[in-house]
Design a protein around this nucleic acid. Structure first.
Length: 211
DNA sequence: ATATCGATTATCT
DNA sequence: GATAATCGATATG
């Protein structure tokens, strides 16, 4: 398998079937895939290294836990649609709906490794990249990821990520993560002990303090 | 109409 | 390590 991204694959979204499974399975399979934003001529791409699974009614930490509301309706809809919400008055978080239509569940994208469109991401984030280690400032954390990719609720909530030609989707370029680590989820107070955070082991671009 | 709080981050000390 | 910033969804009156 090629080490570099097979750019030819970067216009082909993952299928609806991929997302129509348990969020824990989708989470694990999303690691190593490539998140793509295609805005006309501009291409933003980043390899997913950290995600979290949020289950439906049985998961107190999930937005879907209290049942369907206008805000979380996407999570109850068909799989492969983006769920974007605003948090702490400052940040957007980007998720994808999982499981068949009518059953809630989703995956939160927490951190990817930037591959293409570095300049555009830095501009969107309002930071400058001097050294290689500064790349972490672009997308290391859900709020940063959303800002780097220009993801907002009005623009992207409810978007079908599996549609051919969508400007926002996830692609498989053949990369396979060497090893996957699971930990507890970050920043939640309910069901805080469940090991539903998935990280490519030892990856530099995962959120949190650098080891 | 008003109060509460959150799947975060930047910027202090 | 602690906290301010700051919006909107939701619950309650």
């Amino acid at each position: 398998m090629n080490k570099t991204a097979q750019v030819g694959e970067l216009h082909k979204p993952l299928s609806r079937d991929f997302y129509a499974r348990d969020p824990r399975v989708v989470s694990r399979d999303l690691l190593g895939k490539v998140l793509v934003r295609q805005e006309g001529k501009n291409l933003l791409a980043a390899r997913i290294v950290e995600v979290e699974a949020y289950l439906g009614e049985g998961d107190p930490a999930a937005h879907a836990a209290a049942g369907r509301t206008p805000r979380n309706a996407v999570l109850f809809g068909p799989p492969g649609h983006s769920y974007v919400y605003f948090i702490y008055g400052n940040h957007y978080c980007f998720n994808v709906s999982c499981l068949p239509d009518g059953i809630a569940g989703g995956v939160l994208f927490r951190a990817p490794e930037p591959l293409a469109g570095i300049e555009e991401m830095a501009q969107a984030r309002g930071v400058s990249i001097k050294g290689k280690s500064d790349l972490r400032k672009l997308t290391s954390g859900p709020g940063r990821l959303a800002e780097a990719f220009g993801i907002t609720r009005t623009r992207d909530n409810g978007k079908d990520l599996t549609r051919a030609g969508s400007d926002l989707f996830v692609a498989d370029d053949g990369f396979h993560p060497p090893s996957v680590q699971t930990t507890v989820r970050i920043g939640i107070t309910k069901a805080a002990k469940r090991p539903l955070r998935y990280v490519i082991a030892g990856n530099e671009f995962a959120s949190g303090p650098k080891p």
